[in-house]
């Protein structure tokens, strides 16, 4: 256990150094991160404005609170593992990772967290600026704020596991762009990125309950904003846990199959 902790700390240092090396790239990249929720915030505010101030029980302030919270949650949970994995496989860099006596997923998690340690304060500032500009209506209950943190952690684990499994597709196909895009589009609608899930038409709302995406974004956001009752919160935690377990099982099987397919450059 101590050994694993040491590995994480070391990986952390490497990632910190790497992230600092590309500061400008990061700053530019953050624009895109802030812009997407900002666009939907503006659009849904306009919709509320055009309909007497409320849509689906939400006013302008509620939309502002929703999308600002979403910006933060999304930033904590997002990964770039599918591009990383594709690059690794195509260039044979995975061979080095495989030689190490530790599953490569640990290095991935550590790198992800390390990079966010640097970017999160920036996102927090951006969220603060958006809060000043759009005046969110933020009145959560105390228990739901407490419950938010574990739900965020589970959302991170779930999304990481899900996208790590998705990244394994690179072992079978080089057309990884199309696979990723299909995933992003589905997640956009069913995770609550494009609109609060309560606004989806009923067949889609039903699907959002079956699919895993809601538990990676919409659920923690709703929890933070105090829009769920304790029963719904409990249901959400169970769903997050069940999805994580299920995906970990799939990941185990797929990883073994993937390694059998892997043939490095020069071997």
């Amino acid at each position: 256990m101590n050994g694993l902790l040491g590995v994480y700390l070391q990986q952390w240092k490497i990632s910190l150094a790497e992230t600092f090396q590309y500061r400008a790239a990061m700053a530019i990249w953050l624009i895109g991160h802030v812009l997407e929720p900002l666009l939907y915030l503006v659009v849904w505010s306009a919709v509320a404005g055009a309909n007497g101030g409320r849509v689906g029980g939400m006013g302008r302030g509620d939309f502002a609170a929703y999308f600002i919270a979403l910006l933060l949650v999304n930033h904590v949970t997002y990964t770039w593992i599918m591009w990383e994995m594709e690059h690794r496989i195509r260039h044979g860099a995975l061979s080095f990772a495989l030689l190490k006596p530790l599953h490569p997923v640990h290095a991935d998690i550590a790198a992800n967290l390390a990079s966010k340690l640097i970017t999160f304060p920036v996102i927090l500032l951006a969220a603060g600026a958006l809060a000043l500009l759009f005046k969110p209506a933020f009145h959560p209950s105390s228990w739901s704020v407490l419950a938010f943190l574990p739900s965020l952690l589970l959302a991170f684990l779930l999304r990481f596991a899900l996208e790590w499994v998705l990244a394994l597709a690179a072992f079978w196909t080089t057309r990884i762009g199309a696979v990723n895009q299909a995933y992003f589009v589905t997640a956009l609608f069913f995770s609550g990125q494009i609109a609060p899930l309560a606004l989806l038409p009923s067949p889609m709302a039903f699907l959002s309950k079956i699919l895993p995406f809601r538990w990676t974004a919409g659920f923690p956001v709703d929890l933070l904003l105090g829009r769920l009752d304790p029963h719904e919160a409990l249901h959400g935690f169970l769903a997050q846990g069940a999805w994580i377990l299920g995906i970990l099982l799939v990941a185990r099987v797929l990883w073994r199959a993937a390694l059998r397919r892997y043939s490095a450059v020069g071997s």
């Binding site: 849904w44 849509v55 689906g56 609608f189 494009i194 606004l199 038409p201």
Partner: peptide, 10 residues
């Protein structure tokens, strides 16, 4: 989705 909730947008 947006226009299922409104007639006009801005």
């Amino acid at each position: 989705l947006v226009f299922s909730h409104t007639q006009t947008l801005g």
